[in-house]
Design a protein around this nucleic acid. Structure first.
Lengths: 238, 238
DNA sequence: CGCTCAATTGAGCACTTTCAACGCAAGTGG
DNA sequence: CCACTTGCGTTGAAAGTGCTCAATTGAGCG
């Protein structure tokens, strides 16, 4: 499959998409700027405080969103309180796209965030008018699928130490952090644990061990400096 | 998102798609029969023996496939031999669709199978001519994504007993097996283990325990009869 | 300053893995 | 036709990793 013009491209969190009241940057990236006016008519900005839900698993899926600033977590919960975070979203990412009637996961802001809401019907209509947008969405879905499969490998076959290292590595890659750079862990230890399938205590211990081993350093509990990219890769396992 | 005509529909393994040399039943289901002739011109059937690979992770992704009979496993492998099976494919499922240059997982037949091969370029061209096929593929990708997220929950948060029960339950659902019915486990214990993130010994022990507990019965090591659907659901956890 | 919530640290334990042996069925070659 | 091999599944005992529970420290805030 070829990546057609615009597919998978995203303006990036820091780019202002013209003088749009809403900033549906992901859609902007996929469709190109010529359709900004059209997009603006069906989109509405929504501000979210840290901890605020976008939607919950099981709700009627009547909206589609793109994250325009901040960070979200997507997760599934069981009746008895177990939780699995399936991903952390960065600006430009979509959420809530589904052919089902209901959302199959919950979404919640980790820090103050803004999303851009599209009604499901107008969004569907937009897709029908612009097949290249649907092509772009397919590309995104396939990328997410590949990421999920990578995470399956992590959860199914990696040790706690490898999981934490892999998590850090993945976060750095997405954020463009390089050796010597700093990653801000906006999420809590509990969130990390629920993402990599461990307990908070284990996350804490492994981070401590990596820090003591000189692989990383932690100026504060939510700031990680990558001391050695190579060693972190080794820790992340094969 | 609405499911448009034909999206996500599959003829089913037992349905013969007219007098087609190849039986690209999944594409048939998605596109409708009126395009069978067009599809047949770009597709080629390939027979696979049990254990034979369709493609390997890392290879140039120059083909797209649909499974027309048998069963495949998709998996990722690490350098040190660890393996994670990301899914088992049934007739009608696609594989190898990617916007990347290379395959990101390996695919191998579990039993004698037949696939239908499409060259990447002709397939891409087909998608361009038929936006509704791309829409259908998006639906499939989203379904697979939801399944992967369910599996993340299993791998990250469930006990060995719950994993095995969930696996059986999921397989029965896909195959349409009901209480009292029989599931054939075409895959080996090793495959099951690599799918649910345990060891073969654990799979064996849990299956034994479920059998002794009267939740299931095993006429042979590859045949499971669901004695109590309700209890199996309980075992599968919340 | 005292409160609260998050993160860390410690000790004991449970579940799954690891390692090893055995049974069984199918395939092979004399 | 039978001895032998090979692969897979099962079972047992020991070991280890990560979990549970509990206490302590630290950071943010009224």
């Amino acid at each position: 499959m070829d990546v057609r013009a615009g597919a998978g491209v995203c303006c990036g969190a820091s780019v202002d998409c013209e003088r749009c009241v809403v900033r549906p940057i992901a859609v902007c990236g996929a469709l190109g700027r010529e359709h900004m006016a059209e997009i603006a008519t069906i989109a509405a900005e929504r501000r979210l405080a840290a901890g605020q839900a976008v939607f919950d698993e099981g709700e009627i899926a009547d909206s589609v969103f793109t994250l325009t600033s901040g960070m979200l977590k997507l997760y599934k919960t069981t009746r008895d309180g177990r939780r699995q975070i399936t991903g952390f979203l960065l600006p430009g990412d979509f959420l809530g796209i589904s052919f089902d009637r209901n959302y199959v996961y919950s979404a919640e802001a980790i820090v103050g965030s803004t999303v851009c809401r599209f009604g499901r019907r107008p969004f569907t209509a937009l897709l029908e008018r612009h097949p290249q947008l649907e092509h772009s969405l397919l590309g995104r879905a396939l990328t997410e699928l590949a990421a999920a499969q990578e995470q399956l490998l992590l959860l199914g076959r990696k040790s706690a130490r490898e999981r934490v290292a892999s998590f850090l590595l993945g976060l750095c890659r997405r954020l463009g952090v390089i050796e010597g750079g700093r990653v801000q862990l906006l999420m809590s230890r509990g969130d990390i644990a629920d993402f990599i399938g461990t307990r908070v205590e284990t996350v804490s211990r492994v981070l401590g061990a990596l820090s003591r081993g000189g692989v990383i350093s932690m100026p504060s509990s939510h700031d990680v400096v990558i001391a050695s990219w190579r060693r972190l890769q080794q820790e992340a396992g094969p």
